[in-house]
Design a protein around this nucleic acid. Structure first.
Lengths: 335, 335
DNA sequence: GGACATTATGGGATCGATCTCACATGGGAG
DNA sequence: CTCCCATGTGAGATCGATCCCATAATGTCC
């Protein structure tokens, strides 16, 4: 591997001058510039990123920790991150935190130690105190994605859970549904609260309130969607539509309805949330609220890049809107 | 951030001795070791990874380029990579090549420049000549995943396409199917050839040969699955089972059959390949050949780690087996 | 008791870049 | 004719570690 010294010798100049050409700053005569560029091309010289980073204290690398890269949801988010960072000419390094505080801490510290210029976090657990201290000591800007806040964050990007839930229920109401069930996620998630407010807003717009909807708390899983639906049917609950907290739940709901001999959307309408990868593969194809996950990632990364550009700036916030994806699982209310 | 010099001053020893304690090699008296460990703890010292890598020429970082991290398939593969590298205490840096030769080249060069100790590649295009030279000059071991070979590779991991296809068709034959259609991927893929051989083996085991199966070449997409099936039905082709080249195709096949009023598996059986994320969400849930993608990634990473341990070793090969996942889309042949 | 290995420690070069500073030109303003 | 500023170049310190080598103390063997 050719070094900057090899280039300088070949071009008959000093290291400093080569550095100026490579970094494109300072004064260099056209004559020497050409000689240096020629030498660079002939030797196939590419600067050693490690040495650059060590000396200049900037690695041109962005770190990210998400819950699990192996999951379609976060893979999609990483796609967005990569799109933004690549455009800015920065490398991206991603780790998984696996919803475990110590794993998350380990991943973050690794990124700090590798001298990332900035860090993006989608966490499931609050940051460990020592990690907060480490980030702070390293003066690394942090942008949080999603529900979890954090004291060191200089920016954050969130989904418009309020608007999404409002639109979902609003759509059902427009289709004439009045007996709606909402299968909700864990009650202690910040998202859940925002969605309930959104549901309230939709109901209010039709002269109704939360008393007019049944909310069942559970968890984001197909199993819960299935069992909750079966329980509702067993107890003879009278509903014409279900708003599932996410598309996994919705998949369980559809399965339960089929097993119970109900047809969708003739007997019951179902709407999901996320527009997950499998939503269009369900039967019937799922009407759902699209969460632009890649856009969330891209926005967060751009926000971080902005923060890197102007160090002293204030806290930056950003909310990403949802959209209604109409497929076949919602129809007009029967009778 | 505390440096090794801070630690050495605080503990009253030289840099060298601190380095010995941190790296846990060479001779250090218990007394000084304790003093140094105390100083490290008090200062919260963590070695600067960049400086370590620069001097020692080992970054403890593994690079990987896959087609697209944003895709469930490769996300799953990355999950496997991460599992192996993390266990070995190495960091992982992943990029997408987006099935474009120049993008792939860019991503690889980036990884080389960041001084990765080894590189894992799942490529769609042959390596550009200059990239081959760069990798060779940097003496970085490379492991290839999947179909694409490469002259610099020191190891490779592949799926057992032969066995997978043999098992798929074998299963259909056992269920009594004799009029089978295979929707195949691009004919120029290495995978496709291996699968055709596997199909031949299954047929041979039942005293049949390739003349007894209809093969339609196309591409791995839901759209092709749909249109090909419709075409077969339109021309009145008489078949009882379809073996789709992947689960996306299979989704299209199921949709086409439903639109044509055929029921699965009563009228037609369908088997897929991959066990993709959405396979169990299809209706009926798809019987398919499971491709253990994460295991492929994990195996490849372990192979690379082994290569790093013993530099002079020979070319390492590895084939990952498939398994049959029985769900509901295949039934006994009718009449 | 001298030769030699083992244990223990520090000094200083080194990895490959950046960056500050000193210094040398040349041209335009006063 | 100075003075000063813009332009152009190189020497050498520096980033934070590793690693080779010199040196010294101690123990062991013949």
């Amino acid at each position: 591997m050719a070094t900057i010294d090899d280039v300088s010798k070949r071009a008959g100049v000093s290291r400093s001058t080569v550095s100026r050409v490579v970094a494109d700053n300072g004064y260099v005569s056209d004559e020497k510039r050409r000689a240096i560029q020629k030498a660079i091309a002939e030797l196939g010289y590419r600067p050693n990123t490690l040495a650059q980073a060590l000396r200049s204290n900037r690695s041109n690398m962005i770190g990210a920790v998400v819950v699990d890269v192996g999951t379609p949801y976060f893979a999609n988010m990483v796609y967005g991150l990569q799109r933004a960072t690549r455009k800015a000419g920065k490398a991206l390094m991603v780790s998984s935190g696996y919803a475990d505080q110590d794993e998350e801490a380990r991943a973050i510290i690794e990124l700090v130690d590798r001298s990332c210029d900035g860090i993006l976090l989608y966490l499931e657990r609050p940051l460990r105190a020592d990690v907060v201290e480490i980030i702070r000591a390293a003066h690394i800007p942090v942008v949080m994605i999603g529900r979890m806040g954090c004291e060191v964050a200089r920016g954050s990007v969130q989904l418009d859970n309020f608007g999404g839930a409002r639109d979902a229920v609003g759509f059902l109401l427009e289709q004439g549904h009045r007996r709606i069930v909402h299968l909700s996620g864990q009650a202690d998630f910040g998202d859940t609260a925002a969605r309930l407010e959104g549901i309230g807003a939709a109901l209010a717009a039709h002269g109704m309130d939360m008393a007019d909807i049944k909310v069942v708390n559970g968890e984001f899983s197909q199993e819960f969607g299935y069992s909750a639906t079966m329980a509702l049917l067993d107890e003879g609950h009278d509903f014409t539509a279900i708003f599932a907290g996410d598309d996994d739940m919705a998949a369980g709901v559809l399965l339960a309805l089929r097993h119970a001999g109900k047809s969708v959307p003739q007997d019951v309408s179902v709407i999901g949330f996320d527009d997950a990868f499998h939503a269009r593969h369900l039967w019937p194809p799922l009407t759902t609220i699209r969460q632009p996950v890649d856009e969330i990632g891209e926005t967060a990364a751009n926000l971080l890049l902005k923060l890197l550009g102007e160090p002293g700036s204030a806290m930056l916030q950003n909310t990403i809107g949802t959209s209604l994806v109409v497929r076949d699982s919602v129809g007009p209310a029967s009778h």
